[in-house]
Simulated assay, not measured.
Amino acid sequence: MINFATTKHEHVNLIIDIGNTLAKLVAFDGDTPVEEIKTSNETLERLPEFVNKYAFKQGIVGSVFGITAEAERQLKRLDFPLLYLNAQTPVPITNDYRTPDTLGADRLAAAVGAYMQYPGHDILIVDAGTCLTYEFIDKNGHYKGGCISPGLQMRLKSLRAFTAKLPLIDSEGPLLDIGYDTETSIRSGVIQGMKFEIEGRIKYFQEKYPSLLVFLTGGDIFNFDSKIKNLIFADKYIVPRGLNRILAFNNEQS
């Protein structure tokens, strides 16, 4: 049995990143992520356990899934203030997106998280999660927007849903340049196809912005060729970092 009382950190921020598949709870001590746990995006069932472990002073909630009634009940039990990220929330970059009300919290937070680490650089963020998204922020701190395409599991499931005979396969398994049966053909087509898509997108932006920095985040990992791999900063905390920085920025403004 873990004695959470003996592991408390003082003055820690709670970052709640509610995604399409699950929710991530991250404790930040200043700008440093201390711990991350995953929980249901519908119930936030592990939130009480996590809150008992740290002396949180404040928190921020970013959600692309929405907030269910059960999740809201969990949040209302907290005894420290929460900032709910929305289109009106002040952020430390300039948002040039034409429809800010439709911009996912994760996409905006990713742009903030990357730019705050490397201000003054053109940055492309690749997030390989439920969806495969690309975010571009220029060297002047202007978030310009990005691209959205289906993620890995969505692509695999769509082949089963929209065909008569193709099976739903596991993403784990032999990955070949040319499949020798239906399973390996699907895996090659989907996974290698996503890899080529990402590499092509990076090369396209690099030609337009020669000093481009590239961040890769999300749950799906790809093996890129050496030329592309050397350009990429892998950072699984890029969205939580952005949410944490937005929280700090709002404290500074007030």
Rank of each mutant, 00 (worst) to 15 (best):
F4H: 15
T7M: 14
T7E: 15
K24C: 03
L25A: 01
F28N: 07
F28D: 05
T32K: 04
V34C: 11
T39N: 10
S40E: 07
E42F: 12
K53A: 02
Y54A: 02
I60N: 02
G62R: 03
G62V: 03
E72N: 15
E72W: 06
Q74N: 06
F80I: 08
T89C: 06
A105N: 07
R107V: 14
R107N: 12
A110L: 07
A110P: 10
A110K: 08
G113D: 00
A114F: 01
Q117R: 14
G120R: 08
G120D: 07
H121G: 02
A128W: 00
G129F: 02
H142W: 04
K144A: 12
G146I: 09
I148L: 05
I148W: 06
P150Q: 07
M154E: 11
L159C: 04
F162R: 11
A164F: 09
S171D: 02
L176K: 01
G179T: 10
E183F: 13
I186A: 01
R187F: 05
I191C: 07
Q192H: 13
E197K: 04
E197H: 05
I198Y: 00
I202Q: 08
Y204P: 05
Q206Y: 09
E207G: 13
K208F: 00
Y209M: 02
S211G: 14
S211V: 14
V214L: 02
V214K: 07
T217N: 04
I221R: 13
I221H: 12
F224Y: 13
D225C: 10
L231G: 04
A234I: 15
D235R: 00
D235Y: 07
Y237A: 08
R241N: 13
N251V: 04
